[in-house]
Design a protein around this nucleic acid. Structure first.
Lengths: 116, 116
DNA sequence: CGGTATCCTAATGGATACTG
DNA sequence: CAGTATCCATTAGGATACCG
């Protein structure tokens, strides 16, 4: 994903958005940060099975696109807090809708599997 | 992505949804089919630069998750139409929101780039 | 027209060790 | 605590040729 967006993005902005929130971990990270501001280590504990490397990488991506904010406290041991930015807050509502859709989707699937 | 969903999915359904609509092409394909039912060749012309292989693969994925429907007309030359399923229709509204978010996001970005 | 099959490259993700 | 660095495995995606 580029930081300067192209004509492609303007042709289908949905694609852009999916590029930003896509991947294996971003949904869950955003979901966590939508609940509350969290430190790196908290995220690491909360997101199941993510490695430090991946967590760092995803957070850097999200920060780069101004979806989250990173606040470093100048202290030892270090403390870094992550939170949703203004854009991230807006995105949260959509992710909520997506979660709701997914729930009903999974329920319907489960019901179908029972009757079949 | 499994067809039988796991406890992981129930822990964070958003992840599931992003797994279904993620990837390079699915957003745009769904966006096309949200406009209207389309034949394979129409999709192929409309989605820029997608290969036949990729288009087929994405359509199979979406069909497998019951997001779209595939209707084959028994005629020569063959005619196959793709459309949104009921679940796909519901998803459409969320993708619309996502598109709107993305537009405002890109606009803000563009504005920032001008002033900087 | 609407696909498959084969082969290949690029991108993503993971394991592990190390550090200010 | 909050990261990097290195190396490796897996997956996504692309080029091309062929088929009913």
């Amino acid at each position: 994903m580029p930081v300067r967006f192209t004509e492609e993005d303007l042709f289908c902005p949905t694609e852009t958005a999916l590029g930003i929130i896509g991947g294996k971990w971003k949904g869950m990270i955003l979901w966590c940060l939508a609940q509350r501001t969290m430190r790196f280590s908290e995220l690491h504990r909360t997101v199941p099975d993510i490695t430090q490397r991946m967590l760092t990488k995803q957070l850097r991506d999200l920060e780069r696109y101004d979806i989250i904010e990173r606040k470093v406290y100048a202290q030892v041991p270090p403390k870094v807090e992550y939170s949703l930015s203004k854009q991230g807050q807006k995105l949260k509502f959509i992710l909520d809708d997506l979660e709701e859709w997914s729930r009903s989707y999974l329920e319907e699937k489960a019901a179908k599997n029972e009757t079949s």
